[in-house]
């Protein structure tokens, strides 16, 4: 056998041996937390890195943050067991719970019980402030964009209110709305004028105004939606079996126990744009399910 091939065979044999050493690492029981990607990754990494650390300390189990880059992937990962605890939006949380019988709602933020979306418009579009649902009709024939197709505040509820105001998505310019993919992208696309108007999460809008990412001379709010319930923490069934009796309750207590009094807690809460986490129940999300079914997002 020539020397070159001889060496190749030796390398191969070594690698085969090495790969067997990797197998035992499957066994470690880790709590995998995830979130729908509604923030920039730097913030997601910082936020969930800290949260994983905090939860790991409180619960005495290894906690790992698994990044996911689209909404349905988070729902599927939750259903198939790739993620144990997920920070879902209203719609995705309902979808995930319908697909994963036995999943429990753990908590929401103080702001989630009364959440809002805002409709924004480019100042050169000539769109005026809207004071009633009927006023939404002025959006007919305009270039309009939603955020991600599965977003509660960037698509589902805005589309629901538009429908109540008598506007269907095919009445926008071009016969269809755009889907920018994220709240930040919606601001940028309306800001640039590519779309004349759009709808997004009010909390993201407020922080964009504060940080200067949105210029009030170019984009303004034309309407605030009525309130609805949004984001929540959802846990998979069977965590008690994997991590010991009463684990789900302990997990819920750990999340509710994050307070601004500790340094870690303060950072986490400010990254979540919340004062505190509060208990939440599945029944609060029944209206979201109804709207989801009406608009065909829940089958």
């Amino acid at each position: 056998m020539p020397a070159r091939e001889h060496r190749a065979v030796v390398c191969l044999a070594l690698l085969c041996c090495l790969s067997t050493t990797a197998l035992p690492s499957w066994a470690a029981e880790t709590l995998r937390i995830g979130a729908i990607p509604d923030q920039n990754p730097e913030k997601l990494n910082r936020l969930y890195g800290l949260l994983a650390q905090e939860l790991s300390q409180k619960l005495q189990v290894p906690v790992r943050y698994v990044p996911v880059s689209n909404y349905p992937a988070a729902v599927s990962a939750f259903r198939t067991g790739g993620l144990d605890v997920v920070w879902f939006g209203g719609l995705t949380g309902v979808q995930a719970r319908l697909q994963t019988p036995g999943a429990t709602v753990l908590a929401q933020r103080d702001i989630d019980a009364k959440f809002r979306s805002v409709f924004i418009a480019n100042t050169q579009s000539g769109l005026q402030s809207i004071s009633s649902l009927e006023g939404l009709q002025t959006l007919k024939g305009k270039r309009f964009t939603f955020g991600s197709e599965s977003s509660t505040s960037g698509r589902l509820m805005p589309q629901h209110f538009l429908q109540q105001g008598g506007v269907t998505p095919n009445q926008f310019a071009g016969g269809r709305p755009g889907f920018s993919g994220s709240h930040d992208a919606t601001i940028a696309l309306v800001h640039s004028g590519s779309y004349e108007a759009g709808a997004l999460n009010e909390q993201v809008w407020t922080s964009a105004l504060k940080s200067g990412a949105a210029d009030p001379n170019k984009v303004t709010v034309i309407w605030r939606t009525p309130t609805y319930v949004d984001y929540h923490w959802v846990a998979r069934p069977g965590l008690d079996k994997r991590f010991g009796g009463g684990f789900t309750t302990k997990l819920q207590k750990a999340i509710l126990g994050i307070k601004p009094t500790t340094a870690n807690g303060k950072t986490i809460l400010s990254l979540f744009a919340a004062e505190e986490f509060i208990p939440a129940s599945a029944s609060q999300y029944a209206p979201i399910e109804t709207v989801g079914r009406q608009l065909g997002k829940i089958r």
Binding site: P37, Q39, N40, P41, E42, L44, P67, V68, S69, N70, A73, G181, S182, D184, A185, A188, A213
Partner: peptide
């Protein structure tokens, strides 16, 4: 499209307009 790796990072950073990142 969410299956991990550098693509996920690129998508998330661009979507949130973090151009430097």
């Amino acid at each position: 499209f969410g299956l991990g790796g550098i693509g996920t990072e690129l998508q998330l950073t661009l979507q949130s307009l973090r151009f430097a990142e």
